[in-house]
Nucleic acid binder design. Structure first.
Lengths: 188, 188
DNA sequence: TGGCTATGTCATCGCCTGTTGACAAGCTTC
DNA sequence: GAAGCTTGTCAACAGGCGATGACATAGCCA
């Protein structure tokens, strides 16, 4: 007697992609150190050794994840409502989605030296540069830094406190204060 | 023949305090996971086992460090120049000092679940509450959150990029933009 | 001086991590 | 249908971690 276990069809490309996807989700939700190869493998339903075979080391996998997400999601949508959208995302926690993947990964991995070095190598070219160009205008590099900083900082503050811990009315006030700050940074 | 090794005089209180101090420095500079008991012990010049004996577990030591720093350093100094001072600290990296110990520890430890839980327990009472009271006025809790968020976010952004990576002039522009934002949050 | 307690050290345990090489099972092709 | 390359699994290793209990020694008190 045998149980009919449901195997995924053998497809290297699909499996590789699934690993990349699972890794991305993990790295946006937890820090580099906290994410284990065994965790990712379990998510995909695959042996940990396979990840090593496909991507080399954990660092290489991390690099591949960062290469994969282009960081341009931030800049999609109407420019004139950027502040409002982001303020909502930050306060009400919708940031778990893919919009802010780059930011969240950068944030969560600040603790680990290896991950930080990789982020440092890639963030300038793949994140800050496009963001700066998108912003344009006066002091664009400076505004990009402040913008990214606010987004990361408020997000980490919320995470650390286990939610905003504010009343519904206070949440409204928060978005009302954040939105113009962010919008002003976009407008210049 | 024997080398004259310089032993610190046996003094439990002093040693305990030295451990606490070294741990505080480590936890402000690196993440909870990255800091090892052996590192702290080496800083103090003591056997790792002693730390366990004095403080129990690593979590308990972390809690003790957080209990030790009162988080009121942020609120010292002239209120009317708060924005300017903090903007300078952030951009020029003086934040390594003790002014922002609470903030940096919170920030660096966001990655580890255990540390995050402890921070979550203590930050409300020991950090956000005094900060909120110091701010006072309209929407104080909201302003406290935004303020702490910006400080953490810009700091982590700088850390991750290995410095601000801005020209001297751009640094000036950055402080010029940050200072009024921060000051406005203080003034209400 | 002799002993006793506080203080600090040493060796070691168990656990978890990333990584590796040997092995098993599928799909393709002749 | 059998060889052969691809895809995936298994078991194990080396290294680092926090924590523990047994041992050594310094300083005080009688």
């Amino acid at each position: 007697m045998s149980f009919a276990v449901c195997h995924r069809p053998r497809n290297a490309a699909a499996t590789r992609s699934a690993i990349l996807d699972a890794a991305s989700k993990r790295f946006t939700a937890e820090s580099y150190d906290q994410v284990g190869m065994r965790d990712i493998a379990k998510d995909v339903g695959v042996d940990p050794a396979l990840i090593s075979r496909y991507f080399g080391s954990k660092e290489d996998l991390f690099r591949a994840v960062l290469d994969d997400c282009d960081g341009k999601d931030l800049m999609e949508g109407d420019r004139s409502t950027f502040g409002e959208r982001m303020a909502d995302d930050l306060v009400y926690g919708l940031a778990k989605d893919e919009d802010l993947a780059w930011l969240l990964i950068m944030l969560k991995s600040a603790g680990s030296p290896k991950a930080a070095e990789i982020v440092q190598q890639l963030s300038a070219e793949c994140f800050y540069k496009p963001l700066t160009e998108w912003l344009g205008g006066k002091d664009a590099p400076v505004r990009a830094r402040i913008l990214a900083g606010i987004l990361m900082g408020v997000a980490v503050g919320r995470d650390l406190s286990g939610g905003m811990k504010l009343s519904a009315e206070e949440c409204e006030r928060m978005t009302a204060r954040l939105a113009p700050m962010l919008q002003e940074l976009v407008d210049g």
